[in-house]
């Protein structure tokens, strides 16, 4: 077995170094599959295990401390149609770049039944700037009009599958619970609000308010990894 493996290894080396023909690809594919390491596979498994919600899943409720020292749960809200849950924080420049836009989203949609619920997923022991006290300070500075909750113990963000800040989950309330309708970014330009061409969150909530499906249900964007 070992000998065969080595022969396979040696054979393509010679071909690759000399430019090779069409058959090279087939042989190197065999080598690639032989050479796949456990480490590589483990990485992808880890990612799968932490995937969290997909659009269409029902999100769990939680009970987290707000900056006004009161506990907040989704079930506290009787009269809403859904939620704009945003994992965000103080320290991340991408999150900071979106602060005013998050305030604007709450101003626009709270009265229409889709309030913003902000959750700081970071461990304050790792990131002092994201401590509960600093959350209170930042919220006051920026005039947050929405709950800004600390995911104390970091139990909530992994269930949602949040990977970074900012990371948005739009939930629509139905008879069963809070259904995930959109996962991703707020819009398509973090750096320059004036240059935004697609407002993913606004488009999604507007569609839900008209009884339609969001036109785009998931997006990705650069963000700060969650500090554990």
């Amino acid at each position: 077995m070992k000998k065969i493996h080595l022969l396979f290894l040696v054979f393509p080396l010679f071909i690759i170094s000399c430019g090779g023909g069409e058959t090279v690809e087939d042989v190197t594919e065999v080598i690639d599959s032989l050479e796949q390491t456990d480490e590589v596979d483990m990485t992808s498994n880890e990612i799968n295990a932490e995937r969290g919600y997909a659009v269409g899943d029902y999100a769990i409720d939680f009970s987290l401390m707000n900056i006004d020292d009161q506990m907040v749960s989704l079930s506290d809200y009787d009269e809403v149609k859904g939620f704009i849950v945003i994992f965000t924080c103080n320290h991340c420049p991408y999150a900071v770049a979106y602060e005013d836009r998050i305030v604007a989203l709450d101003a626009l949609y709270k009265t229409q039944g889709y309030p913003v619920i902000a959750i700081n997923p970071n461990n304050p022991d790792v990131m002092e700037e994201d401590s509960f006290e600093n959350m209170k300070i930042r919220a006051a500075e920026k005039g947050f009009t929405f709950p800004y909750l600390l995911d104390d113990g970091q139990k909530v963000f992994p269930q949602y599958g949040a990977k970074k800040t900012p990371h948005v989950y739009i939930l629509k309330k139905d008879i069963t619970g809070n259904k995930v309708e959109y996962i991703g970014a707020i819009d398509d330009n973090y750096g320059d609000e004036a240059a935004v061409t697609v407002k993913y969150v606004e488009d999604a909530v507007n569609a839900l308010l008209s009884g339609e499906e969001p036109p785009i249900t998931s997006t990705v964007a650069i963000g700060c990894s969650i500090k554990m």
Binding site: S44, Y190, V220, A221
Partner: peptide, 17 residues
Amino acid sequence: PDANKWIPQIDSTWSGA
């Protein structure tokens, strides 16, 4: 800036973190 366009071209599993 429009990360949703280019991030998936790097890798379909990348969250952007």
